[in-house]
Computed example of a mutant assay.
Amino acid sequence: MLAQLPFSPLGWLPILLGVAAAYVVFGIAGFGTALVAGPILINFMPLSRIIPLLVLLDFVAALGNLLPSRRDVVRGELLRLLPFMAIGCTLGVVFLLKLKSDVLLLLMGLFVTGYALYGLAVKVRPATLAGWWAAPMGTVGGLFGALFGSGGFLYALYLSARLEAKEQVRATQSALISCSTVVRLSLFMLAGVYADKGLLLLALCLLPVMFVGLWCGRRLACRLSREAFVRLVTWLVLASGLALIGRYLTT
């Protein structure tokens, strides 16, 4: 099966390690796969293939996170965010399929770097947000989710400022990301992206690695401080973002 894909044996190693690391992070934080895997995968395929690939894997992973915690979902906040998330996802898919690959490379580098700097700078829980913040947070989260594969940090920021219980935040975020993957999956299907059998085959090959990453992430979440681990990953993401910007400037 692997022989049908255009990657050398040496090329497979960073791909498998990058995807595994991404889903370790997903198993702990519930989002962030594209922030970790994207800077690695972009050396082997364009961003317009990476994001649909990760959406397929995220769909399976998000369902696995949602099912055990579905009773803690706060439906009011979920329904408030969903319409704006769908609008943002639609805009993001259009931009992803229309923009030139070098422009997307720069945008992804800036996005990843900005997110990492934000994550390192913000050390306290944000103040309580009013409900109307669902409009900008949902729209921009959906846009970033479709364009760069990760708008989850915006949903986490909004929900942590609206809900008191950590379990409610995680469960509602898992439900939102599950809905986001369904929306993005549907939009990519309508755009004909998944007519590419090579992309589907690659996703199938990466499923075992995804499950291993999720399993490791969930075990680490029980033993390691989530804040300490996410901070370490944020430093790695910052280095990846700067590398992408440097790559754009030197090409």
Rank of each mutant, 00 (worst) to 15 (best):
A3I: 10
P6R: 13
F7Y: 08
S8Y: 09
P9W: 07
P9Q: 10
L13H: 07
I15H: 08
I15M: 11
I15S: 09
L16Q: 02
V19Q: 03
V19Y: 07
A21D: 06
Y23H: 14
Y23E: 12
V24D: 01
I28E: 05
A29G: 07
T33D: 01
L35P: 04
V36I: 12
A37R: 03
P39N: 00
L41F: 05
I42Q: 07
F44M: 05
F44D: 07
F44Y: 13
P46E: 05
R49S: 15
R49Y: 13
R49W: 11
I50D: 06
I50L: 10
I51Y: 00
L56V: 02
L57G: 03
G64M: 11
R71Q: 12
D72V: 08
E77Q: 13
L78A: 13
L78D: 04
L79Y: 14
L79N: 13
P83Y: 07
I87C: 11
I87K: 07
G88E: 00
C89E: 14
C89K: 11
T90A: 15
K98Q: 15
K98W: 06
S101Q: 15
L104C: 08
L105Y: 11
M108H: 01
G109L: 01
L110I: 07
G114Y: 07
V122D: 15
K123L: 12
R125F: 06
W132H: 12
T139M: 14
V140C: 09
L143E: 04
A146Q: 03
F148I: 09
G149W: 00
G152I: 05
A156N: 10
Y158D: 07
A165V: 11
K166R: 15
A171K: 05
T172P: 10
Q173W: 05
A175I: 06
S178N: 12
C179G: 09
S180Y: 03
T181R: 01
V182R: 13
R184C: 12
R184I: 12
S186E: 13
L187H: 05
M189D: 14
L190M: 10
A191P: 00
A191W: 00
Y194C: 08
L200C: 12
L201T: 06
A203S: 13
P208G: 05
F211Q: 12
F211V: 13
V212Q: 10
G213Y: 01
C216Q: 10
R219H: 15
L220G: 06
A221H: 14
R223T: 09
E227Y: 14
L232A: 11
L232N: 14
L238H: 10
G241A: 04
G241H: 01
R247G: 09
Y248R: 14
T251H: 14
T251A: 15
